[in-house]
Amino acid sequence: MLRDAWAVFAKDLRIEAKTRVGLWQVLPFAVIALVTFAFALGPGKSALSAAAAGMCWVGVAFSSVLVVGRSQGIEREHGVRTAQRLAGIDPAGVFLGKTGAVAVQLAVIEAVLGAGAVGLLGYHVHRLWLLLAASVLATIGLAAVGTIYGALTGAARARETLLPMLVLPIVIPVLIAGVRCWQAASVASGPRFGVWLSVLGAFAVIYVAAGVVLYGQIEEVQ
């Protein structure tokens, strides 16, 4: 399973590195979303810095829909799905590989948005380890649930509208917990964050496990 996962992970990232769809389309979208939120909130520095964490995570959540859509688009092209089945690749491996590739792309988006928040919105990082831990857990959760729903809607005619409708409500706990952790990371001490890290960890574990168990059945309906 892990060997299959690594093969799919490397294949997806190689395709992204060559086509650069993420770099030229998804990343600019995430930055535009962040800037648009800033325009909506006004130029007040305090309002912007207070909302910076929320703006970043909403940007990441919206971008995740595009990244997942693209990740499943790769599978639809050139009969990749059929080829993987014929090659006997473990569905759980496909799920883990695709989740990993989506997670890497989301991590890049988070890094850019985080830098944007520091540079443009006055967001301060006091506890880098908390920021990184929350980001890693949230990214895995987002990628796992996105990959499950991306595969479920992959063959659908209206997948572009269906995917955000399914993914965005389900990732609300990640959004809440991610924002709280980033807010806690912006001060030297203060708000409790243990419970939010637990939410992110539980979400990631539950949906990675669900994906590993269910992905074989999901592939059957595609």
Binding site: V145, Y149, L152, Y207, A210, L214, Q217, V221
Partner: peptide, 8 residues
């Protein structure tokens, strides 16, 4: 699958 994923 969707019902299960949503219910979780």
């Amino acid at each position: 699958i969707a019902a299960l994923v949503s219910f979780i």
